[in-house]
């Protein structure tokens, strides 16, 4: 790690973080639209929603919750490691964080393959036979979790890039706001999941 050289003259960490927080608001609102739809349709079809939710794979969902929370922990640790100048450990932690994302997606793949195998996917003939409320539930389920999965993918890539940047010294003790921002993004992905998980998997 290279501690020499002054930080860039135009460097404004506070500004960069402010920008990131604003961006995160927009992400929250993006998912917010889906949660509004969820709320309205839940109110309209409480029983069908509960029935459909019961069919989701709770074990895989729980595993994924644990995986994402672990990922967030690793990323938070990597940020504080960099803050103390420990670039080696930070790099490992970041790779670990990226790996949790991949693990999450692998789980999701298993879960969705099984469900699609049972003929449950948006617009499927099997769903068309069921009560409309269940069709809406699964429609929202696939779209919301799909969008979230996309964010996990982007987040993992980001973390991998951060790991590389730590390795080649572009992220260092006096200059790691980009890492902090990527960490924030990863926490957001986590946070959204924390809402998705009970709404879809734990609904009674």
């Amino acid at each position: 790690m290279n501690d020499s050289g002054p930080p860039h003259p135009h460097q404004d960490d506070t500004g960069a973080k402010l920008g990131m927080w604003l961006f995160l608001y927009t992400e929250v609102l993006l998912f917010g639209g889906l949660f509004i739809l969820y709320a309205v349709y839940l109110q309209r079809y409480p029983r069908e929603f509960a029935a459909a939710a019961g069919e989701l794979n709770l074990a895989l969902g729980t595993a994924n919750t644990v995986i994402l929370l672990t990922g967030s922990l690793l990323v938070a640790l990597s940020v504080s490691a960099i803050g103390r100048g420990n670039c080696g450990p930070a790099q490992g932690l970041l790779w670990g964080g990226a790996a949790t994302g991949v693990l999450f997606l692998a789980n999701k793949y298993i879960e969705w393959s099984a469900e699609i195998g049972h003929g449950i996917y948006p617009g499927s003939p099997a769903l068309a036979q069921r009560p409309p409320g269940e069709n809406v539930f699964f429609g929202l389920y696939y779209i919301t979790l799909g969008l979230h999965g996309l964010h996990v993918l982007i987040g993992s890539i980001l973390l991998a890039v951060m790991a590389v940047m730590t390795a080649n010294g572009s992220i260092r003790r006096d200059r790691f706001v980009v890492l902090e921002n990527s960490g924030l993004y990863w926490h957001l992905v986590d946070l959204v999941w924390i809402f998705i998980f009970p709404l879809y998997y734990l609904l009674l």
Binding site: Y41, Y121, P122, P131, P132, N135, L140, I143
Partner: peptide, 18 residues
């Protein structure tokens, strides 16, 4: 867009949407 590509029916009263 997804409605057109996948036909999840989230806005289609016939499939429970609104």
């Amino acid at each position: 867009i997804l409605e057109r590509l996948l036909g999840a029916g989230l806005f289609d009263p016939g499939s429970g949407g609104d």
